[in-house]
Simulated assay, not measured.
Amino acid sequence: MNSIFYYVEASVFCMILLSIFFYKTVTSIYLEQRQIFFAHAVFYLILYITVDIFWALHYKGVLLLPFLFCFLLNLLQWFLASVCGYFWFIFMESMRGARYVEKSRNRKLIFLPVWIASLALLSSYFFHFPMKVGRDGCIDNMAYYSYMMLLPFFYVTTTGLRSLRQYLREEQKSQERQLLLPALYPVIIIFAGFLQALLLDIPLLCYAYVLVILIYYVTMQDAHISQDMLTQLNNRNSLKRVLRNRFREPGIHQGFYFFMIDIDYFKSINDNYGHLEGDRALKLLADTLRTVSRRLPRRGCFLARYGGDEFILLCDCADDKAAFRIVQQIQQEAASRSRNAGAPYTIEVSVGYVRRDHTIRSAAELIRKADEKLYQYKHVKQTANRA
Rank of each mutant, 00 (worst) to 15 (best):
T157P: 03
T157K: 03
T159S: 14
L161S: 04
L161H: 02
S163L: 00
L164T: 07
R165V: 08
Y167Q: 07
E170P: 13
Q172S: 15
K173G: 15
S174I: 13
S174E: 13
S174C: 14
Q175C: 10
E176A: 13
E176C: 14
R177I: 15
L179N: 14
P182N: 12
P182F: 13
A183F: 14
L184A: 06
Y185M: 07
P186C: 10
V187M: 06
V187R: 02
V187H: 00
I188Y: 06
I189H: 07
I189S: 04
F194M: 00
Q196I: 00
Q196Y: 03
A197Y: 00
L198A: 13
L198P: 01
L200Y: 07
L200D: 04
D201H: 05
L205Q: 12
L205H: 12
L205A: 12
L205V: 11
Y207A: 10
A208C: 13
Y209K: 02
V210C: 13
V210H: 04
V212W: 05
I213V: 14
I215W: 00
Y216D: 09
T219Y: 03
T219P: 01
T219G: 00
M220A: 00
D222V: 02
D222Y: 00
D222L: 01
A223M: 11
I225P: 08
I225T: 12
S226H: 13
Q227W: 00
Q227K: 01
M229P: 00
M229L: 11
M229V: 09
M229Y: 10
L230M: 14
T231N: 12
T231F: 08
Q232S: 04
L233F: 15
L233S: 14
N235Q: 03
R236K: 04
R236Q: 06
R236E: 04
N237C: 01
N237K: 08
L239G: 07
L239R: 01
R241K: 09
R241M: 10
L243T: 11
R244P: 05
N245S: 15
N245L: 13
R246A: 06
R246K: 11
R248W: 14
R248P: 09
R248F: 14
R248V: 11
P250Q: 08
G251D: 15
I252H: 01
Q254T: 04
Q254C: 04
G255I: 07
F256A: 05
F258N: 01
F259A: 03
I261M: 06
I261K: 01
D262I: 02
I263S: 03
D264W: 08
Y265M: 09
F266E: 12
F266S: 14
F266M: 12
I269W: 11
I269Q: 09
I269C: 10
I269G: 08
I269Y: 09
N270V: 13
D271N: 15
D271K: 15
H275N: 08
H275E: 07
L276Y: 10
L276G: 07
L276F: 11
E277D: 04
G278Y: 05
G278M: 05
G278P: 05
A281M: 07
A281D: 04
L282E: 02
K283H: 02
K283T: 06
L284V: 11
L284W: 01
A286V: 10
D287A: 11
T288H: 09
S293Y: 05
S293D: 03
R295H: 13
R298N: 14
G300Y: 10
C301S: 15
C301W: 08
C301M: 09
